[in-house]
Structure formats: C-alpha cells, structure tokens
Design a protein around this nucleic acid. Structure first.
Length: 807
RNA sequence: GCAGGUGUGGCGAAAUGGCAGACGCAAGGGACUCAAAAUCCCUCGAAGGCGACUUCAUGUGGGUUCGACUCCCACCACCUGCACCA
C-alpha cells in the first residue's frame, strides 16, 4: 500500500495540536529540564525557506531530548511590534492591530504544517498588552536604576522611516529596514547605558557556546581597546595656560614623535576656546562644511584628508615640553574616546597622510623605513624594534618602552590607564506608532517622571492616523486625549512621552516570559526561572544575531543585578543557521522572484520529505542553495521505510543487525545533539539499505528504527508505529545499546608496508595485537613485501590498520 | 586594511592524524514490461593497461610524522563581519 502523506500528516498534526502533545511541565517531579528555543517569528508575512532550515534542527533536538527522558520546553512566539510589521500593515492598508492578530495566527498555522513540536499554550506576542506590560516594567526598572536617560544629542535619523535609529540599525550609513541614507540630527533621545555593561558582555561572550565568527563579530562591535589617556595643557599666543585637553592613545610609546594634535570638528572644546582662536571664521566654515558631508562622503574620502590649522593656540607635550600645533580634522571622530588624537605621522598612516598634505614635520621615534609610509604598531611591535629620538628611552625595545613611558607619564600626574569601547549607549526611542509606549510622563515641573508599576501596562491607544510624519514627530503626539495627563509626582498638568520603544526591546527578554507566560504579578515566577534556567540551545538566523544577542546579554545582566532573574547568562548555546540561497547563490527572500515557499514543497512532497531534504542539502550553519535536485532520493527513502512494515520477521534484535543498530543509535545521539542532521540522515539510510539487502527486519529492530527516525520524520514514523505496535511512539523512550555491540566480531583491516597499502586482511577483533601482527605477516602479499628485510617498527591501530616499517 | 570562516568528483557533500570521496543526486548500462512510469541490479575522481593492477589526486608551495583533507609555516581565491576607533 502506498503512503498517502496528505491525509496522514494532517491527522498527526491535528492530534498533536488538539491533544497538546508537547506541553512542557513546570517543576516536573522526575525528569530533568531541557530548554530549546527558536527565535521569534517576524509577524510580517508567511514563513519562508529560512524557517524550514532554522526550525527543523531545533524541533529534531526537542523530540530527541523528549525520548531521552527530558522535560522539554520548546516554545514559539511572534515579534509583532516595530518597523517590519508596521510597514507591512501600511502597505496592505490594514490597521496594525488587526494585521498582527491575523499574522500571528497565520504563522502558527503554518508552523503546525511543518510538524513543529511547540508548546503552543505558551505562545507569546510582543504587541500583546500582557506581554508588553513587562517590557515596559523592565524599562521602568532601567529608568529607576539610572540606566535610562534622555538627552539632546546627535543621533542617526532615517528620513524615509521618519525615525531615530540605533547605531546597530544604521550600519554603513544605511537604514537597516529600508536602505535609505541615514542622516545625523540633533534630537531629544532616550538612551540605555549599555556601554557600562561592556566588560560584562565580553564575559557572556566568553562563556556562551557559539561559533567563533559570531563571537568575533560581537567582540568587534564592543570594540574594547586598552591604552593611556594623557592630559595636554593648552596655551594661547601669549603663553597663558587656557585649559587642558585629554587624549586617548593605544600607542603611548610614540609620544616623543607627536608633531600635531587634532580635534574632531564637532568637539565642544573648540567653542570654549573661541576667544583665543584667531582664524575662527575659517574654523567655523570648516565645521559647517563637514557637518553637511554625509557619512558616505566621509567614508569614500578616506584617502583625501581635510582639516584646518587652529591659529592662536598650541598645546605642550608633557613628556618633553615641546610646543605642538593644533588642527581640526574630520578623520577624527567626535563619538569615540575624547574626540581628539595625538598625531605621530611617522607611526600612524592617517597622521602621515594628513601631515603630508599640511606640510607638518615628522619625528621618527622607532626604527624602520618611514620614507614612503608610516611604520605602524603592528609592524614595530611584531619585530619589537628599538626606540630612537625618545630621550632616556633611546635604544630600548618598544615593548619595554611602552610600559615605562606610560608609567613615567602616570608618575608625572598627567596620564592614566584607560579602556575605551566603540560600543555606545543604546538609542532607545522611535518616532513610530507601532511600539510599546514609554511608561514616562514629561512634567514641566518635575521633568521625566516614571509611571507607577501598578499603572502598567500603559496601553497603546487606537488612533486613526498612525502614519509617520515628515517632521519626525511621533504619530502618538496627535492623540491628545491620551497625551495629556497628570504628573504622577506633583499632580499638575503634564504630557506623556509620545515616542515608542524599538522592536528589539520586546525581543530582549522573550526567553524569560516563555517560562511563565501568563503571570500577572511578575515578568516570571522566580522559582520557575530557577527551574528552567538558561536556554540550553537557542537557534535562529544569523541576520541580526550580533545586536540581538548583545542586547539579550545586557538585559539579562541588568535583571540579574536587580534580583529579577537567577543567572547572568540567558543562553548556554547559540546556533546560527545558514541561509537558503536561490539558484544564483543569492539570499532567498520574499521579494526575490524565484523564492520557493516551504508550503509549496510540503504540498508537493509532504512535510517529512521537505524536512529531510532541506537538511540533506548541507550542514546547519552552511549557506545552501535551494534545489529540487535530490528530493526524489528522499521520497524513495521514505517509501522504502514505509515498506519495512511488510518485511517483519522475528521478534528480538537479530545477530545480523545488532551491530548496525547499535552503531546507528550512537551516531544519532551525537548528531541530534550537535544539530548535524545531514549525517544523521545518511546513517539512517545506510541502515535501511542493510535491512533491505538482508530482506527482513525484526519487530524490535523496527520499533527502535522508528524512534530513531522520528525526530526528522515525525509523521510517517508515528503512523507506522501505531499500525504495527498499536501504541503511540511519543510514549516510547530512546532505546539503549551495549558498548560491546559497537564492534563487529570480524573486520577487514588495511596492511601497509612502509606506509604503502599491500593487502587487506580479515581479522578476528577478539584477538590480541600479537596474534593479529603474526596473522598479518603470514599473508602472501605481506610476506612478499617484507621478504629479506628487517622490520624496524610495527604500528597497530585497533580495527583499522597495521603498518610495518622495514629496511 | 583588520578579524573570523571556507576551499575535496559532473553536482550537494562525508571523513578532524589511520583504506579519501560515506550518503544522495545526475549520468551510463542491464532486468521486468507490448510500451512507458515505478521498482530492482551493475558502473561511475583522473590517466594508463586486455588484465589481476599501476600512477596521480582534497586551492598552491614548503614542513612535522611510519602515516596529513586533518597539525605547523607561507601564499592564492572566495564568503561573512567590522572599517579613518587614535
């Protein structure tokens, strides 16, 4: 009888859903916990191939762990707030509230069709007031603990989305959502003090089990850099001390080579020194000019340095009292360290180029050829070159001089050791309608005032006009009934904050809410948090992984410090799934014309075939081009599996199959654990091939095999199990195997003479090394190869090979 | 430029110091069939030989080792991330 996947798959999907087959039990009395998490679905459309690639390994792991006796928590939810959902709603003309509700139902129904074993009772959605109450609560805690502040500052602004963006959302000067050029604008903005957490985040990165390239990207984003901060005194032309300037450097060893210092055009120190600057008009003009340059211009002009000399002031190099001219230049970034650099043209390529253009002299302080370009730290540190032109440090090795010079400056009281980070505080507000409202009231008398916890959630009001406007004011500002309120502190007239939280806010704590999704008193019960602990395996795409994981670390650290959660580490292991590429090797997306929908594949071939095919194409972390090629092989594999029920002969495990079954069991345990589904599939195929060759399978062998295959192909195995054994496969436990059955009684080993293959010999694996060596030497081909020669060395690798070294 | 990763048949890929190419696709040949589909069997890295076989092969060049896809050094190509970060 043929396998009718359409009816059978539907039957099991309905059964699992309505019988709540995969419900996780809080505080299970006997089973240990295991927490598998797949990232939020984005509620802006249908599931795509990426979901098939990303969810199935997590599902297989969850199903495998249940057989292994774990109490598995495997939940799902929707990321519904934010630009993707709102833009999709605007595009379709549907109100976001309705759009999101339909969208969530849609993706949940689709995920049932993938046969995913989620605990659907724990489904959460970031735009649900029961959920965002606690997102707002976390913000309140941040605010009340001084970790959130509002400040007028230069921020990234997307003129197309009409909203402020975080640095993370505007990488490369382009809006992450719409690709428009981002401009820098001065605005009132909310920030979270994430920079304070830099060292703790680095600790999280060290502890988590995650691919090295992803860790590196995160360390890069944090951008930790150790160095020395030196104070320079500033003088005017009359040699009067008019202030001081702090400069951070990682190359304190070059301090004798300073020939100019440069300030970022935006540096406020310039305004303070205005009265002493003789060419103020010129400087002001340069500042205006650079302010107009877009990020893109500044980047593309890297080779061509611009700047202006500041007349009327100079600074003194504290190490040798040399007078040093001051410039302003836009290669110096205002946002990093103190927005000023000490320039040593001989040993820094950017300083070198600037000096060439402005005819500034160079002082070489470390040996090397500086005639064509700077000798930079990478070069002189690796060679540990000698110092020159550096007073008492001449002739000393650079590495030694680095510490000694720093110490001297510190002893002089003009410097301190310092660590800087590229990562800035998290710009946390968006001028959009579709997000969590800030639980903050702006009072003309009291300033920013937090709502009381009992007034949460602060519901996002329904408005007619939710489109962003061109001035970049939040659409909520037009909801006057909602905006006007009383100050919780003084009771006088006040207004609500009308910006909303960014959508990464709701994503930054979701793994905690799944643990206790319906709790009205707390974000989650502390004892339940302790029971479920950190996520054992968190899977998802790699697209926004750097930001999402860092924000997750940040919030978890903060919540840990205020006693709301029991651990600093949200995740034990984080896996980033590769992409499904289209036939041209490009990322397959909804917008690409040749995008294939997983539902289309399921419709044609069935869910089990689709699940296996996608993962037989390549490894979990690899990017794999989509193709239907090979899918027939999977169909015929499952057809052969189906036919096994007509081949049953005997009850217990047969001598013919005990080795193959045990080896398969061991291999699958490793592969499911490591999400290596491609090799798991091939191991299963090898077993079926063997059984087919032998023409029979025993009942016990089939029982075990169906359990082995179930995590990958849950439908066909459930059906076969029910038909053959009249029981439910989900009630089974993973079979055990005996170590002694992992070795065959007889194997063929390779025999080499001087590392060259001369023969293959069947040996009895119970024999000793001596017995095997003498057996091998009796073999005709081996005899011929070693005749008249002395054996100087005998190498024996058990059950693999013998290598005889002769002279 | 810096960092991380990858490089193996016609294709997707296995093998992490021990018989390279498991498993699958495609291709070719055969069986069954009036015929086709489906199914089953055989061949399938390259070159040479009628042949048991031989030689060469894991991006390139060196090295370590009895033995290297695997470890070390240098280089090339591609992918990803960051990029005037002092």
């Amino acid at each position: 009888m043929d396998y009718n996947f359409k009816d059978i798959e539907k039957k099991w999907q309905d059964k699992w859903f309505y019988e709540k087959s995969f419900k996780a039990i809080d505080f299970h009395p006997t089973k240990p916990k295991y927490y598998v998490l797949y990232e939020f679905y984005n509620i802006s459309g249908n599931l795509h191939m990426g979901h098939l690639k990303g969810t199935i390994p997590a599902d297989a792991l969850a199903r495998f762990k249940r057989f292994k006796g774990y109490n598995v928590l495997f939940p799902i939810g929707g990321d519904a707030f934010g630009l993707p959902a709102e833009n999709a709603a605007i595009k379709t003309g549907i109100n976001p509230h309705d759009f999101v509700e339909n969208g969530l139902n849609n993706v949940i129904n689709q995920s049932r069709k993938l046969g995913l074993s989620f605990d659907y009772d724990r489904t959460i959605c970031t735009s649900d007031p029961d959920y965002y109450k606690w997102t707002q609560w976390i913000f309140l805690q941040l605010f009340n603990h001084g970790k959130a502040y509002k400040e007028k500052s230069k921020v990234n602004f997307c003129p197309h989305c009409n909203t402020v963006l975080s640095n993370e959302d505007s990488q490369g000067g382009k809006c992450d959502r719409c690709g428009s050029e981002v401009v820098q604008e001065v605005r009132w903005s909310w920030f979270l003090k994430m920079r304070e957490y830099a060292e703790k985040l680095l600790g999280n990165i060290d502890r988590i089990n995650m691919a090295e390239n992803l860790k590196e990207a995160q360390r890069n984003w944090i951008g930790r850099s150790e160095g020395t901060q030196i104070t320079f005194q500033i003088f005017n032309d009359n040699d009067e001390n008019i202030g001081s300037l702090d400069i951070f450097t990682t190359c304190v060893e070059t301090v004798y080579g300073i020939t100019f210092v440069a300030l970022a055009p935006e540096n406020e120190l310039l305004d303070k020194l205005k009265s002493n600057i003789k060419n103020w008009n010129e400087i002001e003009e340069y500042r205006k000019k650079t302010a107009l340059r877009t990020e893109f211009d500044r980047l593309s002009d890297q080779k061509d340095k611009t700047g202006a000399k500041i007349e009327g002031i100079y600074v003194v190099n504290p190490i040798n009292k040399a007078k040093v001219p001051v410039f302003t230049a836009d290669f110096v970034l205002a946002g990093y360290a103190t927005g000023a650099v000490m320039a040593v043209p001989s040993h820094d390529q950017r300083d070198y180029e600037f000096a060439q253009k402005f005819n500034i002299p160079c002082i070489q302080v470390i040996e090397g050829d500086t005639s064509k370009c700077a000798v930079e730290k990478k070069e002189y540190l690796s060679k540990n070159s000698k110092m020159m032109n550096s007073g008492e440090f001449d002739g000393m090795n650079v590495k030694e001089a680095k510490t000694k010079i720093a110490q001297k400056l510190i002893d002089m009281g003009v410097a301190e050791r310092k660590v800087n980070y590229k990562m800035t505080d998290w710009a946390f507000n968006r001028q959009r309608y579709w997000g969590e409202p800030f639980p903050i009231v702006l009072c003309p008398h009291c300033g920013e005032v937090a709502l009381d916890e009992k007034d949460l959630p602060l519901i996002l009001p329904q408005v007619k006009d939710y489109l962003p406007n061109e001035k970049g004011d939040s659409p909520l500002s037009k909801a006057t009934d909602w905006v006007n309120c009383k100050c919780p502190k003084c009771g006088r007239e006040a207004k609500r904050e009308t910006d909303t939280l960014p959508n990464l806010a709701g994503l930054s704590w979701c793994w905690l809410r799944y643990i206790d999704p319906h709790n009205n008193e707390k974000l989650a019960d502390f004892e339940k948090l302790k029971y479920w602990g950190s996520v054992d395996c968190y899977t998802g795409g790699t697209e926004h992984i750097t930001r999402h994981v860092l924000y997750a670390f940040f919030w978890q650290n903060f919540l840990y410090e205020i006693g709301a959660v029991p651990t600093r580490d949200p995740f034990i292991r984080k896996m980033g799934s590769g992409l499904i590429l289209d036939s041209e090797g490009k990322k397959m997306s909804k917008s690409s014309a040749n995008g294939v929908s997983p539902l289309e594949v399921i419709d044609k071939y069935g869910t089990d075939v689709a699940r296996i095919h996608v993962h037989f194409l390549g490894g979990y972390e690899d990017n794999t081009p989509w193709t239907y090629d090979g899918i027939n092989g999977i169909t015929s594999f499952l057809d052969r599996v189906w036919s096994l029920q007509d081949m049953i002969k005997g009850e217990e495990i047969s001598n013919e199959h005990i080795y193959e079954l045990s080896i398969l069991n061991k291999k699958l345990c490793e592969d499911y654990e490591n999400l290596k589904l491609n090799t798991a599939i091939s191991a299963l195929m090898i077993f079926v091939k063997k059984v087919k060759e032998d023409g029979f399978i025993t009942r016990e062998e089939l029982r075990q095999f169906l359990i082995f295959l179930n995590p990958l192909a849950p439908h066909i195995t459930s059906e076969m199990f029910e038909r053959v054994f009249k029981k439910q496969i989900l009630d089974q436990t993973w079979p055990s195997y005996d170590e002694k059955n992992l070795v065959k009684s007889s194997v063929e080993i390779a025999v080499q003479v001087n590392s060259k293959m001369v023969a293959k010999v069947n040996i009895d694996t119970s024999k000793s090394q001596e017995e095997i060596l003498s057996q091998v030497k009796e073999e005709e081909k081996v005899k011929n190869a070693i005749i008249n020669k002395n054996i100087v060395k005998e190498i024996y690798v058990p059950n693999r090979l013998v290598n005889l070294i002769v002279k």
